[in-house]
Design a protein around this nucleic acid. Structure first.
Lengths: 122, 122
DNA sequence: TTGACACATTCTGATATCGGAATATGATTG
DNA sequence: CAATCATATTCCGATATCAGAATGTGTCAA
């Protein structure tokens, strides 16, 4: 077997830089394929293909208007990833907490120590 | 060209379900390769190979102890992804703000209705 | 209807990736 | 040193994936 199919897997869909670029191009709101092509530096077929993948994993949706096609982000899929990585948020806070401790001790000398709320730097 | 190398790309590293499983197995703290093998249902060579990828993108670090090797998460890379997906948080909040309001009210029981920040209706 | 435009799909070849099996490395113990 | 345990690496075949070029589809306008 090779790598799991990109279709139906949001994590794989996001793994491609070009697709992230497309999503970023859509941050401002709806956009036409042509507009996206201009925004990211890719050929039209490439963009269409990447849009197809993004469509299949439900990261974007489209709306036809005449001969154009407006794409927009459907952010729920991104939320899944955000939540998954969020599981580890405690671990990157850990480091900052230790740094906080060091800083606290340095502080403790001359100045009245400011109270630090522990964790959740977000 | 085929897909961008999994090495040196955190997004690609995370795209593989097995590697996510390994990371999840490390959530509790340091773990030995053998322990990870037991936790996720994979062969030892598979786990070692996935750990190698994770090491190369700096998502894990290892510490040798005798003939064993303790792996731990280096969460900074995950933070990159968390932040990137966070760029789109506004787009899923749009939908959820209303739900948040409802839940808040339920928490608080039958109480004076909270004033709403002007609704983001779609 | 014909042509032009916007976009989608299909083909191709090159390459990366995966799982599995076998094997190699490196440390510990007898 | 030899055997063993824990882990890493290598080789293999199958397959997914990418970019690029060519072509297909559908809509509008003259």
């Amino acid at each position: 077997m090779a790598r799991a199919s990109t279709t139906s897997d949001v994590f794989n869909a996001i793994a491609e830089p070009a697709r992230r670029a497309v999503l970023e191009a859509l941050r401002g709101g709806e956009a036409t394929v042509g507009t996206i092509v201009d925004a990211v530096a890719l050929t039209q077929p490439q963009v269409s293909k990447h849009l197809k993948v993004l469509r299949e994993v439900r990261l974007v949706a489209s709306r036809p208007v005449g001969k154009e096609r407006f794409y927009r982000i459907d952010a729920d899929g991104l939320r899944v990833i955000h939540d998954w990585t969020g599981m580890f948020a405690a671990m990157w806070n850990q480091r900052l907490d230790r740094l906080d401790d060091v800083l606290s001790e340095l502080d403790r000398g001359p100045l009245p120590t400011k109270k630090r709320t522990k964790g959740n730097h977000r």
